[in-house]
Design a protein around this nucleic acid. Structure first.
Length: 292
DNA sequence: CACTTGACCTGTCCGC
DNA sequence: TGCGGACAGGTCAAGT
């Protein structure tokens, strides 16, 4: 679930709670999700929290950084002195904080703690040298340009209309698969890919390179629009997504087609949303509006 | 090389 | 009620 808007929501809070705090210890319970040495993190003070597509990068002042990818069910939950609002623990934290799905606990100064929970154990944490992030992370190295959702704070490798047109016109796969291919475009996952395509009435199975110039332009704008809407809503929390202070987003209640199988199309076209599979992924679209 | 499929995981939901 | 099986989705390795 966590796509660009969800990971950005996590980043904003991590920035708020972690910057200028020191990692005192790292408790690793499930070693498979942790690559590198925890010794490189201990004693480091958090300088900044960045995001590249769906990956979080926590930069420390000791020349090391920590890369975190929460994949689908990973959660980062903060408990500590500067958390003003004490929230009741979300039922989305399966097994409870520190329970069977807590795989790593970062012990911070002043008694703060950052918990990494992940029911399905797909997510990962990796320690890397800050100046060699791309060399040490295959994922970052291959990551494509990323849609701009905040003009005042653009990503390092922004997706421009020109770049978008180039990748779309070069690919023979379905446009939906292309949108979700992190090497081509960073940050877009299933929910926002479905919604963006519905918004511009393009059939998700349409071969990417068959899109016309106008369609490409409209889709580019729609992508930015749905991602911004996702951030505005604090992300989509349907399955496991919550932010470090325990807040849930509500984009799941405002999706355009995603998860709406058999429901009436929001365009009032009379069509009913159909669910198909594209590259093994659930895909929702309106057969009436989004004709091939 | 370009693209698709299966594996990784576990909880949840559906049908019998 | 219990049980098997399909499904959820992000990424990578393996397969076509």
């Amino acid at each position: 679930m966590p796509e660009l808007p969800e990971v950005e929501s996590i980043r904003l809070q991590l920035e708020k709670y972690l910057v200028d705090h020191v990692i005192k210890d790292v408790e690793i319970r499930y070693h498979k999700c942790f690559q590198g040495s925890k010794k490189d993190l201990i004693g480091g003070k958090v300088k900044q929290v960045r995001r590249f597509g769906k990956v979080l990068v926590i930069d420390l002042d000791n020349r090391y950084s920590m890369l975190i990818h929460v994949r689908m069910t990973g959660q980062l939950i903060y408990k500590g002195p500067n958390l003003k609002k004490v929230q009741k623990l979300s039922e989305k934290v399966k097994g409870g904080l520190g329970g069977k799905h807590t795989h790593v606990i970062f012990h911070l100064d002043y008694g703060g703690k950052l918990y990494y929970n992940d029911v399905r154990k797909f997510g990962w944490i990796k320690v890397a040298v800050s100046s060699k992030l791309k060399a040490e992370s295959k994922f970052l190295k291959k990551l494509g340009p990323e849609p701009v959702i905040d003009k005042d704070n653009p990503p390092e490798n922004p997706l421009t209309l020109e770049k978008f047109a180039t990748v779309v016109q070069a690919s023979g796969t379905s446009i939906k698969s292309l949108l979700m291919d992190q090497k081509k475009i960073a940050g877009v996952g299933n929910i926002y890919a479905n919604d963006a395509l519905w918004l511009v009435k393009i059939n998700p199975t349409k071969v990417s390179k068959k899109l016309g110039t106008e369609e490409i332009k409209k889709l580019f704008k729609a992508l930015e629009k749905v991602l911004k809407e996702g951030i505005k809503r604090g992300g989509a929390s349907e399955i496991a997504f919550i932010t470090p202070d325990g807040t849930e987003g509500n984009y799941q209640d405002f999706t355009l087609v995603y998860g709406k199988e058999r429901e009436l199309c929001l365009n009032n076209c009379g069509g009913k949303i159909k669910k198909i599979k594209i590259s093994g992924r659930g895909t929702y679209y309106c057969p009436n509006c989004q004709k091939l």
